[in-house]
Amino acid sequence: MEKVLEVKGLSKQYSKVLAADKVSFDIGKGEIFALIGPNGAGKTTTIRMISTLLTPTDGDAIVNGHSVLKEPEKVRQSITYLPDEAGAYKNMTGKKYLRFMAGLFSTDIDTINGYVERAEKMCGLGERLNDKIGSYSRGMIRKLLLSRAVMTKPALAILDEPTSGLDVLNAIEIRKMIKKLAAEEGMSFLLSSHNMLEIEFVSDRVGIISKGHLHVTGSADELKERYNAANLEEVFERVVKGNEVL
């Protein structure tokens, strides 16, 4: 399968913490990959390195054929990134925000209009798009940002905890959106979450990470079978405990 992302031994050493320790995995075209792990596991750190926001202390990641170390500008053309707990400019209306962000990805008016139209349809905010973002609820902001992240049809959309802080209905809606985009448009996704049950529904493959180590990767079914577990949570428990004993 064609690879959109290849992560090769990425490491990040903060002044005191080794937040990512030789993390390696890859994502194919149209695939949804989820990094799962508890708080402080190193998910955001790994994601930020792939998004060219953090410089790795070791290793490299290749996005759509471009190295994050050597050609970060080219990488940025192939990805979109949605930070965890992200907000948007409160004084802008939803429409203005979409237009502003689209203007960062293209200089062609028709292309920009296309992006904005696509996002407007996808976010389902309707008339509320003319209101200031400061008046939006958390779920509305998430939907706006998510449709922003996918409106440009990036090769790889990187979403850090896309459903955190949302109610069940909103979370389901967003999951459906992601699955549909991957299936119908062949977009690839890198997600992160600490909600392992939820991630089982949405992702094709998962990677279990804790304390900077990416322990195993595989589809949810594969892993459940390998660790003889009823769900991913149990898999996680066994993986982390097993590694601690070793």
Partner: peptide
């Protein structure tokens, strides 16, 4: 972060 990860 969003700005810095955009192609500008």
């Amino acid at each position: 972060e969003t700005l810095l990860s955009a192609p500008v």
